[in-house]
Design a protein around this nucleic acid. Structure first.
Lengths: 249, 249
DNA sequence: CGACAGCTTGATCGATCTCAAGCACGGTGG
DNA sequence: CCACCGTGCTTGAGATCGATCAAGCTGTCG
């Protein structure tokens, strides 16, 4: 299981625009690279970020922080996949978002995290003390714009999620989910198969379904010839148009 | 119906901190007041905003903009209630958010709106050409911080919405919805009754239910003595603790 | 007063959940 | 090296909650 997902971890989605070793902009690479991508890297900012960053490896299943904890840090995911989960008192779990390399975790105006961040695969994050991170926002206008863009994109993602949960049936939800993963992978170069780094229980908690229903929906898509699923963590889209139809959007 | 909801429109939620007539910061009042509230109003910014703003009255049922349209403007809602709806091809509608005075509409990084904005009640908005609005973000750091905070809060709202739709049953959804409205009204001073400016169909499309199920859930809460519902658009919380229990959060 | 839009309530149907069994695969220990 | 075990996935059968279909009610407006 672990070895299956490990392959993808070192491949940074922003690898095409990496900076030379030793360049102060290089770490935290995702932030620097994203800024660079937008034509706005600032040497001074890179150095200031580097001065406050802590880079850490984490294992699959590990909790980066828990719902209700004081929100001391802002995280930038460098490698691996993380799930943001909100728990109800009776144990029900809703995965709010899956986060991939380059995504931020823990941007909130509240003083406490209102979800937990749990590692779906092993990986690596860069962590910044919130206060100092926010101070840099005011000092570097490009950086603040960059963060505004990031949060706005995250908002758009959440709104898509609302649409899926509010209106779509089980098969439509799973089809939409597969298309989201496909689109994400396509964004950084062509690929053949969609890799599902998370297990069925995670997909279920993301889509507001049970593992059984997720499994049945995948089987249904497979039996109807829209996708192939050589194993539980790999999906190949055979008929993209029909998959989009089945996703209803 | 219209007269019922009209009463609430003039009451700006930020009325406690309004600025004198003629002050350039006064219009658009919501933005200026919110900034002021955060101790950060800038006369120059107020004047610049006023120079590009168009203030417009709208009627109940009116569409401010439609899904797919070029995103030319950013709106600030001054009075009334607006629903952001995403439509699927077959006509299903998901209300992404209800917006109230002081909220922004149409903040997106995309070039097109990916939802429609529909007036739930009559009201008023201030509208800014996107390009110029964004230019002001780069010029006025306080303003950009303010917008970042706004979008971050909107994201937190959307994440709550995801939790409701993904994990909660019908009664829990309606109870959560009532608590959200209650909390919003409490934020700006004590109040007795919760006013429901939207109709059952809107609540249903927000909560991913049918009007019948919304109606049944409200009846259930009423019959169990947790709320009173003197008419279809008014709810009084009788037992807040039990309502929170029934909302499961 | 009648018409209409919106709300409520009842009866039936169906999609998804729940419970249960069996399967597939990787890891471990003899 | 193979048998065993555990975790995660799939599939089936029955139960349940909410959707659908249908009827009647309420309040507003002309």
């Amino acid at each position: 299981m672990t070895s299956l997902t490990f392959d993808r971890i070192p491949k940074c989605h922003f690898r095409g625009i990496s900076l030379p070793e030793g360049d102060p902009r290089r770490c935290p690479q995702c932030i620097a690279n994203k800024l660079n991508y937008c034509g706005a890297v600032d040497m001074e900012l890179g150095a200031r970020l580097q001065a406050i960053v802590t880079r850490t490896h984490f294992e699959r299943g590990q909790t980066l922080f828990s719902q209700g904890e004081s929100a001391e840090h802002i995280y930038a995911l460098v490698a691996g996949v993380v799930a943001c989960s909100h728990y109800l008192d009776d144990g029900r779990r809703q995965i709010i978002a899956f986060l991939f390399p380059g995504d931020y975790i823990g941007m909130t105006t509240e003083t406490r995290y209102n979800y937990s961040a749990e590692a779906v695969t092993e990986g690596e994050y860069c962590r910044f003390p919130r206060e100092q991170f926010i101070r840099l926002l005011t000092e570097f206008d490009d950086f603040e714009q960059h963060c505004l863009r990031e949060v706005t994109n995250e908002l758009a993602e959440a709104q898509k999620h609302v649409l899926i949960l509010g209106q779509k049936d089980a098969t439509e939800r799973v089809a939409s989910f597969l298309l989201m993963l496909d689109e994400r992978e396509n964004r950084y170069g062509a690929h053949d198969d969609i890799e599902l780094p998370m297990m069925r229980a995670d997909i279920a908690d993301y889509l507001g379904l049970t593992i059984e229903t997720v499994s049945r929906s995948i089987s249904k898509l497979r039996k109807s010839g829209v996708i192939a699923a050589p194993n539980a963590h790999l999906v190949r889209i055979l008929d993209a148009d029909r998959l989009r139809e089945m996703a209803s959007d």
